[in-house]
Nucleic acid binder design. Sequence first.
DNA 1: AATTCGGGGCT
DNA 2: AGCCCAGAATT
Length: 339
Amino acid sequence: MTYLSDSIIEWYEKYGRKKLPWKSIEPNPFHIWVSEIMLQQTQVTTVVPYFQKFIARFPNIHTLAIAREDEVMSLWSGLGYYARARNLHKTSKIIEKQFNGFFPTSFHDLISLPGIGRSTAGAIMSLAYNQSYAILDGNVKRVLARFHQVSRPGSETKYESSLWDLANKHLPNKENDKYTQAIMDLGATICKRSKPDCDICPLKTKCQSFHFNTQDAYPMPAKKIRIRKMNKTFIVFRNREKIYLEKRTLNDIWGGLWSFMETEDKKNIQAIIKDFDRNSKIVKKLEPFIHKLSHREIKINTVIVETSKNTDNFFALNEINFGLPKPVAQIIEHLKLER
DNA sequence: AATTCGGGGCT
DNA sequence: AGCCCAGAATT
């Protein structure tokens, strides 16, 4: 099958996005890898400023591999899905040690690395090395689901599998790098989720959804996830200009970032405070606010506690340079303004 | 096979 | 207010 790839590549020559910051005349595998990880479940416009700051600080694998994890997390702060950053760092060390600092060039080696799955490995093989591998991101899924009117059976696995088959079937026999970029660009700029610009789409003469006017029905919607609502109380221990922070464990949200002590049960607040410092007391409560995640909705309460303790985990507001969850960063900004 | 993991853009 | 985004790892 070459109609689809030929048409898309031809379209890309005229209308594709060729100036994204991770693109260069000579492909840079390190840049492509970092961008692919940042772009997982994250839109291009969100990623661009993070990518530029990240590359300015870590221009190559070596600088990343020898960095402190806290600094890596700091540059990821606000981007979300923090396991991506931890895996990125972990993988840079693996490449330094096990691959002698050379970025892997085979699909087998790439997919063995933390944070690199089938689609990301395919993207690197294609975009960095012009090898014939498919990707299956949200853009490609949408284009293929519409082009073929792919239905979503009971089994999600079968649906994914049939899309992968189509993605492989449509691979061109040359210019795979250009094709991969092209089909993503088409999905992002023409074959959009809502109001696709079918009239100027290079695939319209053979697109099933255009023919039957079913663009809104494809891709068929995924199963709805239910959003868990929960409460959290952040306990901000403050000693003059310094506040207490601790590093979060990896098996929860915001893993590896620094945060306040917290509880989900308000009845525990007094006990936690007295356990920390029996002479401390609550001096203030901030206005509660809702922090929304894609799978949770957290009502965040904040209590400020004055303490005279001053351990290693106390930091001046202006010297905090590691990763912070969004709501924690918000609260710290608020505290700075009060000064 | 289903759930978990962020935060933001767009409608 | 709800859905989706250059998905992968874990349960």
